[in-house]
Design a protein around this nucleic acid. Structure first.
Length: 488
RNA sequence: GGCCCGGUGGUCAAGCGGUUAAGACACCGCCCUUUCACGGCGGUUUCACGAGUUCGAAUCUCGUCCGGGUCACCA
């Protein structure tokens, strides 16, 4: 008996915004498929014609490409079960709904929006129990008459009046809901488009989806899906509901991650300087835990390690600190060439043109930044020597004070003036030799040199690196500025 | 409010009846050191509460509390 090929699908709505919750769902769908040699399908769910956003589909393609979640079937590459855009499948859904009507599992509803709204208002919101099933018992002749007259209608699913519905979830186990809690949901809208719920079931079945993966906000509506599958007599897919990703609110509470939680969109995170691989790695761990005790995973490694039983049930709070740590790890793991290439746009904010000592800049920044966007600020002192007080030259630990610093700087100037080679190594050799010659701790000499060169207490890199980037002429100029500050 | 789901440090979490309750982030201290960072070492902080079951409960059961989700011609 051969196992059926696993097929999962990512089914986003083209809203123009991809937040990490969606992306994480896509990731898990990809991982579930790929970890079992399965197929990952992309389907665009654009049944809400009122919310269409220009260019939104491209954002979806771009995002998936950036994180490496390559789909095997989809609107752009086709596949055996297309089309993969729901608006192009519009004519598929109605016959299925009509089939349900004939089977007595669904019915036409002619209620106006006004009547529906008055249902909501009539009782005070909290008591509203859903649609009152007014059209469920309409006589056939009345239905035919209204249809013939061209009355706008929707098609609703008939929910059982009694009993309960139970389904199995791969993460949450067995879940039961009383049927009286279920509303006669709309299958086909008055514009002829299917609702999300209906199109989902039809398409998942037609596309042979074996595992339906989604956020657990859908948990309570899943019995309706099950009932739909049963009404059609179709095999029910495996449901994999994912714990929600939560965002911190301003008041300290948490709620389902959304736009209002600031920069949690994929594009926002990229703009802030997070690497796609960082985001993938971090969100993979938000709700899933590997068997082995480790945290750094590339996408192929995730495919290797992933399994559904590692998915947790409790919601996870999105933590920027941890995300930054991951990003730092990945930045440090880059080759220097890759780092320079990635950092160049930020380098250019400080050095708009011309050549610089890129390798030295990379060597001082790569271990220090957790986001590439931090680069311009860290390098600002190269662009222009900041104004700083003479007190900067006083440092107890380096055993240096104003008086000392004058001596050190003067000696350094002399040494550096005759310095031919201007590399980190040669500067290092020259200055260390000088410290020995002067009989002082390295720090006693290097502290004032570093301060004078940078004009700031905290610098990325040490004195030699800074001098190397500055170049001989500018270095000597800054050292003399330092000297004049102390003497003033 | 009804229904559904959840509850191990500030955060992500391992744990599946017997553990000194892993690990990571963050935080603090020390080491390295010309500052910062990296790296190394160490530390603070946790089983929501109450009953049961059991020789033994973070692990099983029930109740309470707390948190979240959901109740559309949105997806």
């Amino acid at each position: 008996m051969q196992e059926k090929t696993v097929r999962t699908r990512f089914a986003p709505s083209p809203t123009g915004y991809m937040h990490v919750g969606n992306l994480r769902t896509a990731l898990y769908e990809y991982l579930i498929a790929k970890s079992q040699g399965g197929t990952f399908v992309l389907r665009i769910e654009d049944t809400d014609q009122e919310r269409l956003v220009e260019g939104a589909v491209d954002i979806i393609y771009n995002t998936l490409r950036q994180v490496g979640l390559q789909h095997d079937e989809g609107p752009d590459i086709g596949g055996e079960y297309g089309p993969y855009v729901q608006s192009e499948r519009k004519q598929i859904y109605l016959p299925y709904a009509q089939q349900l009507i004939e089977a007595g599992k669904a019915y036409y509803c002619f209620c106006t929006r006004e009547r529906l709204e008055s249902l909501h208002e009539g009782k005070d919101g909290s008591e509203f129990g859903g649609y009152d099933r007014h059209c469920r018992s309409l006589p056939k002749e009345e239905v035919d008459r209204l249809l013939a007259a061209g009355t706008p209608y929707v098609i609703r699913q008939k929910m059982p009046v009694e009993g309960s519905t139970t389904f199995e979830d791969a993460v949450y186990g067995s879940i039961t809901i009383e049927n009286r809690e279920l509303e006669d949901q709309i299958l086909i809208k008055s514009d002829g488009y299917p609702t999300y719920n209906f199109a989902n079931v039809i398409d998942d079945h037609l596309m042979h989806i074996t595992h339906v993966v989604r956020g657990c906000e859908y948990l309570t509506s899943t019995p309706k899906y099950k009932l739909l599958y049963e009404a059609f007599g179709w095999e029910i897919p495996v449901y994999v509901h994912l714990p929600l990703i939560m965002g911190k609110n301003e008041d300290g509470s948490v709620s389902k991650l959304s736009k209002r939680h600031g920069s949690t969109g994929f594009a926002d995170l990229i703009r802030e300087g997070f690497l796609p691989r960082t985001i993938v790695n971090y969100i993979a761990l938000l709700g899933w835990c590997p068997k082995e005790n480790r945290e750094l995973f590339t996408l192929p490694e995730l495919v290797e390690s992933f399994s559904i039983d590692g998915i947790s049930k409790s919601p996870a709070v999105f933590d920027y600190d941890k995300l930054e740590w991951f990003n730092g790890e990945y930045i440090r793991a880059m080759s220097q060439d890759d780092f320079i290439a990635a950092a160049m746009p930020y380098f250019r904010q400080v050095f708009p043109q011309g050549e610089q000592n890129w390798p030295v800049l990379a060597s001082i920044l790569q271990p220090r930044v957790t986001k590439l966007t931090q680069i311009p600020e860290m390098l600002a002192f190269f662009r222009e020597l900041p104004d700083y007080p003479a007190e900067f030259f006083v440092n107890k630990k380096s055993k240096t004070n104003l008086e000392n610093s004058v001596r050190m700087l003067e000696a350094a100037v002399t040494t550096l003036q005759s310095q031919q080679s201007w590399t980190v190594e040669s500067l290092h050799d020259a200055l260390i030799a000088l410290a020995q010659e002067l009989g002082v701790k390295n720090g006693t000499l290097l502290w004032p040199v570093r301060i004078a060169a940078a004009g700031t207490l905290v610098t990325p890199g040490g004195a030699m690196e800074i001098l190397a980037v500055l170049g001989k002429e500018e270095s000597l100029r800054r050292l003399s500025v330092g000297l004049s500050k102390i003497k003033a």
